[in-house]
Nucleic acid binder design. Sequence first.
DNA 1: GGGAATGCATGCAGAAAAGCAATTATTGCA
DNA 2: TGCAATAATTGCTTTTCTGCATGCATTCCC
Lengths: 168, 168
Amino acid sequence: MNGRRPAWNATPPDDAVDALLVASRALVSVAARSLAGDEEITLPQFRTLVLLAGEVRVTVTDIAHALDIHPSSATRLCDRLVRKGLIERIASQDDRRVVEVHLAPGGRAAMERVTVRRRRDLATIADRMTDDELAGAVKALHAFADAAGALATPDLWGWDPRLPEDSG
Amino acid sequence: MNGRRPAWNATPPDDAVDALLVASRALVSVAARSLAGDEEITLPQFRTLVLLAGEVRVTVTDIAHALDIHPSSATRLCDRLVRKGLIERIASQDDRRVVEVHLAPGGRAAMERVTVRRRRDLATIADRMTDDELAGAVKALHAFADAAGALATPDLWGWDPRLPEDSG
DNA sequence: GGGAATGCATGCAGAAAAGCAATTATTGCA
DNA sequence: TGCAATAATTGCTTTTCTGCATGCATTCCC
């Protein structure tokens, strides 16, 4: 209802969602693989790194919300990432209860390595598409990423009424 | 080199791979969330169910290759899925060493629930795209899924020289 | 027929993830 | 000032995921 499509066509067609769904599975597979082979970085850990890379100020609570896990689990997740030298905990100046989590140099490097790996796999897939298909995919995926990104901010994920917490 | 693009343009452009990469992260996030809320199905477990849903004959070895894990890990994964009533083990007729793994009714139902959840989230995102963007996305994503699917068959993933096992 | 290879399972072990309850420190508000 | 709310952590428990080595049954091939 909040979207960019007119009110007389308020619901995205099923086949569009289907296409996203199928592509989603393929991309998840690629993502899981790019992680599996790499040096001991798990999916929750990588998702945390991605979050840190994209936001200026991320707290432990933000991580818990973004990954939809218990705050204590987020603390433990950070423990492991700190132990690996991938992130740093910094006490917030504004509110001394808060701990800001930042990407450490090692974390940035690790993201780099995983990303290179994933790019390689994606390039292998892209290589099997025609130029036209690829151009269309790029345009579409940019739009998709923008739309997803607008919802992916910590302020929205998890407690936004647009995505009811547990209705399924 | 094996792809559908002409030889004079053999490598997919970086920005295309970039778009896939960014979209990949967004979709992984959606996928992880659709799992987190649901009933105790982990990512490896769901990936297994997806594999079973898409192939006619899947063996334990196939699962190990598809998920890039040790055969014994695949056995344990199946143990847990059997215990949950999501899959069934059936001794192969052709080769009595082989165990075929099939989706149980409960597994199909579980996939259904997770998929409904994921579709809901994807629809929320699609709702923020224009009709044109969405139409382009469907076309492109189908092509992408086809290209990925061609590589995702058990025969290719894991030991196809196109995706060197550990070069990163 | 007999050894090699294949497919799967089991014993063993370690790491990761996740939740709940309880605690500490800090902040906000009446 | 004092009490409630918030942020993060810690202790504890359980489940899952993963690999390696080993063993067992079956199949393949010389």
